[in-house]
Design a protein around this nucleic acid. Sequence first.
DNA 1: AATATCCCTGTTGTATACAAAAAAGTTGAC
DNA 2: GTCAACTTTTTTGTATACAACAGGGATATT
Lengths: 218, 218
Amino acid sequence: MEQKRSDIIANQIEELIFDGTFSDGERLDEVQLSERFAVSRTPIREALLRLAQSGLVAHYPRRGVFVRQPGPIELIEMFEVMAELEATCARLAATRISDAAIDELKATNARCNAAVQDSDTERYYRENEQFHAILYRESGNSFLEQECLRLQRRLQPFRRTQLRLRGRLKQSMKEHEQIVSALVEGDGQAASDTIRSHVAVQGEKFHHLMSRLKTAAE
Amino acid sequence: MEQKRSDIIANQIEELIFDGTFSDGERLDEVQLSERFAVSRTPIREALLRLAQSGLVAHYPRRGVFVRQPGPIELIEMFEVMAELEATCARLAATRISDAAIDELKATNARCNAAVQDSDTERYYRENEQFHAILYRESGNSFLEQECLRLQRRLQPFRRTQLRLRGRLKQSMKEHEQIVSALVEGDGQAASDTIRSHVAVQGEKFHHLMSRLKTAAE
DNA sequence: AATATCCCTGTTGTATACAAAAAAGTTGAC
DNA sequence: GTCAACTTTTTTGTATACAACAGGGATATT
C-alpha cells in the first residue's frame, strides 16, 4: 500500500502550513508549488483538493486555494467536538477495554512521565497523543477511532500550545491517571466526564488559547 | 460560489452508487466514466479522489478505485457515532436553542405527520432529515453541525431503509415529539438520551438492517 | 502437464497543451 | 486627477499526450 506522490505532497504542504511557512489567508499558487516540489501542476492540484476536503485550505472555484486557519470560534467548536468524541470513546471503552490495553495505557503514561522528567517535550507530545489514540482504539468502534484520529491530527498544533500552559502538564498527567482508574473500575460515566473536561477548552485554558492565537497572528 | 464540474460529477457518481447502478466491490473505470459523462479523465479523477476521501470508494494506488459499501459492522459503528453526535447536539441545543427554532421543529414535525397521512414517503424522508438538521444547527456549534450533516448524508440510504420497518414511522414521530418536549423544558439529559436511542441501531432495528443488507447483496 | 518467464495490453499517474475566466494594467473620457 | 471601459496577462479548469506499472496470457523449459 504505497502512497501516491500527490499524497506525499499533501502531507508536506500540510506541514508547511502547520510550521507557519504558509500563513493564514495566503494564496497557494499551483505553479509556484509545482516548481518547489519539482513536479507538474497535476499532483499539486490533487494534493490541494485533498487539503480543501480536510478543511485546511479553502478552495474558491476559478480563484484559487487559500490557507484557512480556524478562527477562535471555530477552534473552540472543534475542541468541543473533540471532547465529546473522546468522551464517547471513554464511555464505550469502559465496558470494552482489554486488560492488555489497560497495561498499554499505564505504560504510555509512565513514558509520558519520563519525558516530563527529561524535559523532552517532543516525546511528551508523542506519548500523550499515543495515550489518546489507545483510548480511541479501545472504544471498539473503528469508525469512531478513525474520526477521532482525523480530528486529533487537525487539532494537533493547537493541542500542543495548550500544553505549554504553566502547570498544565502536571494537571494533565493527573487526569490521565484518573481516566485509567475509571476504566479499571468500569465506570464509564467518570471516565467520560474526566476526559471531556481534560480535552475541552474552558476556564484558564480558554484565555491561554486566545492569547496564543493573537501572538500567532502577528 | 459555483461548483466545478468535478464536484457535480462526484455527486452524480455518488448517486449512481446509492441507487445501485454501481454495486459493492465494482471497479470504477476512469475511461468508461469519462465517456459516460462526456468529459476527459481529469475531472473524473478529481471526483473519484473526493469520493475516496469521503469513504464511499476505496482507492488502491495504481490499481483503481472500487465501490466500497460499508459492511454490517461498519454500518453499526457509523450509526453508533451518528447517535452520539446527535445526542451531543441535543444536549447542547437544550440550553442554546431559540424559540423560533422550537417552532421550526414543531412545524417540521407537523409536515412530517402530514406526509405520513398522504403516504408521501419521499416527502417524509425530507422532512425527517430537516428535523434532524435543525437540531444540528441549534447545537450552536457550526463545526459539529457540518460533521453531522456529512455523516447524515453518508448514512442517508440506510436510514431510509430503517424507516421502512413496520410501525417504525409512528414510533419515530413520537420520539420526535419527546425530543421537542425535552428541549422546551431545557432538559438536556432527556433530549440527549431520547435522540441517542432514536438514532442508534438496536433491538428490532438491528435485525431489520441486517436482513436489508442481505437482500441488497443479492 | 505444470510452472516460470517474458511480452503484450490495459490502466493509472504525471506532464504538457489548450481554453476560459478572473485579475491587473492601460488608455481614454470627463 | 479620477473613474470607467478595454486590453493584456495571469491563473485556473479541462483535454490530451506520454510514461510507468500491473495483470494476463502465451511460450518455452523441465
